[in-house]
Computed example of a mutant assay.
Amino acid sequence: MTSNYVTRDNFGMYAKNADGPGPAIMGADTLLGNDVYNREGEKLGDIKEFMVVMATGQIDYAVLSFGGLLGLGDKLFAVPWAALSLDTHNKRFTLNTPKDVLKNAPGFDKGHWPAIADKAWAGSIHKFYGTPYSEV
Rank of each mutant, 00 (worst) to 15 (best):
D109T: 15
N90D: 13
A115T: 06
G12V: 08
L32N: 03
F93S: 04
K91A: 01
S134L: 13
P98D: 13
D109N: 15
D60L: 13
S124E: 15
G41V: 00
R8M: 08
N10K: 11
L95F: 05
Y61I: 00
E40D: 11
L64A: 02
K110C: 03
D46A: 13
T30Y: 01
V136A: 14
S65Y: 06
M26P: 00
A82Y: 01
K75P: 03
K43G: 09
L84M: 06
G27T: 11
F77Y: 15
A18F: 12
P106I: 09
W113V: 09
P21H: 11
L102G: 03
L84N: 09
D35I: 07
D46N: 15
G68I: 08
A18I: 14
G57S: 10
F66I: 03
N4Y: 00
V53K: 15
K75E: 07
N96A: 15
K110P: 04
F93T: 00
S85Y: 02
N90L: 03
R39M: 07
L72F: 15
M1S: 08
R8F: 08
F128G: 00
L64E: 05
D100G: 04
P98R: 09
M54P: 04
T2N: 07
L95A: 05
D109I: 13
T97Q: 12
F11R: 15
N10L: 09
A62K: 04
P132G: 11
N96W: 03
T56A: 09
V79I: 14
A78S: 14
Y5V: 03
P132K: 11
T56M: 08
H126R: 08
A62F: 12
I25M: 12
L84S: 06
L86D: 09
S3T: 09
P23S: 03
Y129A: 10
I125W: 10
G68S: 04
T88E: 02
G57N: 13
T56I: 08
L95S: 08
A28R: 13
A120S: 12
S85W: 01
K16C: 11
M13I: 05
W113R: 15
V101D: 09
E40A: 14
T30E: 03
V6S: 00
H89M: 09
Y5D: 01
S65L: 07
D74M: 12
T30G: 04
S85G: 06
F128V: 00
W113Y: 14
N4L: 00
F77L: 07
E135M: 03
